[in-house]
Design a protein around this nucleic acid. Structure first.
Length: 483
RNA sequence: GGCGCCAUCGUCUAACGGUUAGGACACUUGGUUCUCAUCCAAGAAAUAGGAGUUCGAUUCUCCUUGGCGCUACCA
């Protein structure tokens, strides 16, 4: 059996899309599960659409999510480089291979030179639409003799190379997620293989490269399914064995359309600011795949890898719903070490502060970006707030003042030096309140607001302990002054 | 229009042809609670429609409907 080699082959035409990240994840899981190799190839055959920094974004994003390739394009110490014996792994550096491949097809008349101008093709398409005919190349240049074509090419006439699609018969494939799919050749038009600028189109380049790089399995999004017969026909024309194919379900927006830039955040790297990498991976893994058990929480790639199976990949598209992502993110945040969490959230606090404060606010945070604001009242020396919120429901300023005064004194005398732990002081204070015949609400509310500066915050005793006796008493004192 | 893919709660999804159609998120209600969150308990919520095969269909077949994708010298 051939070794398993799976490639992820994005185009550097913008920032890596969250849908592409899922494809990369499935590529990675599939390859790793089978002890295979995960290859990253850059498909930059469209010079016009390639953007600066595109390759860096792809490589860095994959790395940030922990699914770096074994082979292909990588980055170390800021330097982009390639690893592997099948290089180059960037298509713009492989032009001669595509030209040779195209020349071979021309020679065996599986492809032909086409001299039709873009203008003619536009007119052609317009008239086809008008007559309600299926749009497509009409085959005008199909019948030019090879010698005549060669002469025109030699004379420098602008041209492309088109595939000569068989007019008869059909192609069928056993797709790993869709099962048997059949396409009639008559409905496939003569696709362009080499453009006027000498660059190959995706169709030619991906077939040539997948073969040259000995790719065993191609996992890609469903949008590629319509061009699958063309690719298979190319393998046949070259007399190459085709890899196995798996067309993955699309990720949809809430309008059930293919998720695109217009739907808000779609750049995979942008999710890093709000969600732990593993939370996002966990979420997108479940978008189109299901372990067929009740498990939904996957703490690591290892567990995902253990359960992943192409036969468990769904056919229907899945809507990208952030609610579930948030839920999973909360789950992941809870089990993440505070220091690691602080790093992921890019918090401006020390490791010690992270350990001390994060556990208090984690239950209340949905996103990583909530964390910084959530701990500010703990990390900052001074807090400001509207003193009116110190007064509990049905309370008065006078009463509140008295309560704070009294409990401040009591808390002050509670212990020499610092207080013990939160449970101790909680139990003691609660019985102290009840002994005086006061209500928890009239006491605890103003104290908590005085300590946190907010109507909603963690448990009052947890805050008190986290702040420490000195700072806590200071804040109580300040609250009295503002009332 | 043509070609192809798809179809279970609002969403992600389970269910050897036999289940009171299950779980999770979200939602609603109640409990815990100084607030919010957590946590606990409960609830509402789905097999697109029609034929066929079968003792029996969410499951297999066909049709209809609907949705999506592709239809570039973009990937």
């Amino acid at each position: 059996m051939n070794p398993v080699r799976v490639r992820f082959a994005p185009s550097p035409t913008g920032r890596l899309h969250i849908g592409s990240l899922r494809t990369a994840l499935y590529d990675y899981l599939f390859a790793k599960k089978l002890g295979g190799t995960f290859v990253l190839r850059i498909e930059d055959t469209d010079q016009k659409r390639s953007v600066a920094g595109g390759v860096e974004d792809i490589v860095d994003t994959l790395q940030a999510y922990g699914i770096s390739p074994d082979e292909g394009v990588l980055r170390e110490n800021g330097q982009i480089f390639e690893r592997g014996v099948f290089g180059p792994y960037v298509q713009s550096k492989r032009l001669p291979m595509y030209r040779d491949a195209a020349a071979k097809l021309i020679e065996q008349e599986s492809a032909y030179f086409c001299f039709c101008t873009p203008e003619r093709l536009v007119t052609l398409r317009a008239s086809q639409e008008q007559q309600h005919l299926p749009p497509g190349y009409d085959g005008t240049c199909r019948t030019i003799t090879p010698t005549a074509a060669a002469t025109r090419v030699a004379a420098g006439e602008s041209h492309v190379i088109r595939f000569r699609t068989p007019r008869e018969g059909s192609t069928q494939v056993d797709d790993l997620v869709r099962g048997l799919v059949v396409f009639r050749h008559a409905t496939i038009e003569d696709a362009v293989l080499i453009k006027t600028d000498g660059f190959p189109t995706y169709h030619l380049a991906n077939v040539v490269d997948d073969h040259a790089m000995e790719i065993s399995h191609v996992l890609r999004a469903e949008e590629w399914l319509p061009s699958l017969p063309l690719h298979l026909l190319l393998y046949t024309a070259f007399a190459w064995e085709a890899p196995a194919f798996a067309h993955l379900p699309l990720i949809l927006n809430t309008a059930r359309k293919k998720l695109s830039k217009r739907d808000g955040t779609t750049a995979a790297a942008d999710f890093l600011a709000d969600y732990l990498p593993m939370a996002t991976l966990n979420f997108i893994a479940l978008l189109g795949w299901n372990p067929k058990t009740e498990q939904e929480y996957y703490p690591s790639l290892t567990e995902l890898q253990r359960d992943f199976d192409l036969s468990k990949v769904n056919k229907a598209g899945a809507i990208f719903d952030t609610k579930k992502l948030i839920h999973l993110n909360r789950l992941h945040m809870r089990t993440t070490d505070p220091v690691v969490l602080a790093q992921a959230a890019k918090l401006s606090c020390s490791d010690a502060e992270a350990r001390k404060y994060l556990p208090l606010v984690i239950e209340r945070a949905e996103r990583l970006s909530d964390l910084q604001t959530a701990i500010t009242f703990l990390t900052e020396e001074n807090i400001t707030y509207d003193s009116a919120i110190l007064i509990p429901k049905n309370g008065t300023p006078e009463r509140t003042k008295e309560v704070i005064k009294t409990i401040t004194l009591w808390l002050h005398d509670r212990a020499e030096g610092d207080w013990g732990n939160a449970d101790e002081i909680r139990t003691a204070t609660l019985s102290w309140i009840s002994e005086r015949g006061w209500s928890n609400q009239e006491v605890l509310w103003p104290v908590r607001v005085a300590l946190s500066g907010s109507k909603t915050s963690p448990d009052v005793f947890d805050i008190a302990i986290a702040l420490g006796k000195k700072r806590a008493l200071q804040r109580l004192q300040q609250s009295l002054e503002t009332l």
